[in-house]
Amino acid sequence: MRERYGRVGSLDTEWHRIAEEEIARKGRVRGRGIVTDDTLMVLCPMAVYNETGRHLDAWDMASGMVRQIAWTPRWVPELQRETMLLERLFYPEKWIFHRHQLTSCDPRQGGIGNMVNCGAAMYIAPVGAVNAGDPHGAYE
């Protein structure tokens, strides 16, 4: 990526924009597969890691993740505009917002009741990467 695009600091870039005529012809576009909803979800906990500068816990996921998906606008290539990521997500991925923001659950129980869905796992994938080889640390 660095060789082709340099440092990628935003998804709102010229190389990722879709031509107006293509949008007019197709309507809603899929972002050419470069950035998916999984990509956007992984960026959320990474932003929380950057903010906290430490290990994330359930409370960070409850507050930081909710802020990232529901209240922090970001460029969504598929929609070709800046919006809240919540607008782009499927119901299982919205669960973290529903459980923490709308029902005020105990953060340690935030995933209880969610349907099995690979996309929802993308929220937590960076925790596994940060704690590679340390299952206890990942659990904590």
Rank of each mutant, 00 (worst) to 15 (best):
T52K: 13
V42N: 05
A121T: 08
M84D: 04
P45E: 10
L43S: 09
I18W: 01
N131Q: 10
T39D: 08
L40P: 00
M122A: 11
G137K: 04
M122T: 02
K26V: 10
M115Q: 13
K94W: 10
R2D: 10
T13G: 04
M65P: 02
M41Y: 06
R7M: 07
A58G: 02
Y5K: 03
L40G: 00
G128L: 08
G6H: 05
P126N: 04
G27M: 10
P135I: 05
R28K: 15
V29C: 05
A58P: 00
S63Q: 11
R17M: 14
P77C: 08
S10M: 09
H55Q: 15
A19T: 03
M41W: 01
V8C: 08
I34N: 00
D37F: 00
N131L: 06
E3G: 07
A70K: 03
E3M: 14
D106P: 08
V76D: 00
Y139D: 15
P107M: 06
L56M: 13
W15H: 08
H55V: 11
E82N: 12
F90D: 13
W15V: 04
A129G: 06
R30G: 11
L43N: 02
H136A: 05
R7V: 14
E3A: 15
E140I: 14
G128E: 08
G33S: 03
P77R: 06
M65Q: 05
C105R: 10
A62M: 04
G111K: 03
V66Q: 03
V8L: 15
T72N: 08
I96H: 12
G111E: 04
H100R: 00
R88E: 15
F90E: 13
G6Y: 12
F97S: 02
Y139N: 06
Q80C: 12
E20V: 03
G27W: 07
A70R: 04
Q80T: 15
R4L: 14
H55N: 11
T83P: 01
E51D: 14
G53R: 07
R81Q: 13
T103Y: 15
E22I: 10
V48P: 02
D38E: 09
E20T: 02
N114G: 04
A132T: 07
W15L: 10
R81Y: 01
L102K: 11
L86T: 01
M46Y: 07
Y139W: 11
P107C: 09
W15G: 00
P45D: 10
I112A: 14
L86N: 02
W71R: 12
R17C: 07
I23V: 14
C118S: 13
Y123C: 03
V29D: 07
F90T: 14
V66R: 01
G137Y: 11
W59S: 14
R54E: 15
G110P: 01
R2T: 10
G111I: 05
Q109L: 11
G6L: 13
I112S: 09
A138W: 06
S10Q: 08
V35D: 04
D134F: 10
R54D: 15
I112P: 00
M115P: 06
N50E: 13
Q68M: 11
A62P: 05
A70I: 08
H16W: 13
T13E: 11
S63C: 05
E14S: 12
M41A: 10
R108Q: 14
V35L: 06
G137L: 11
Q101V: 08
G64S: 07
E93D: 14
E140Q: 12
T83M: 14
M61A: 06
G133V: 09
D37W: 02
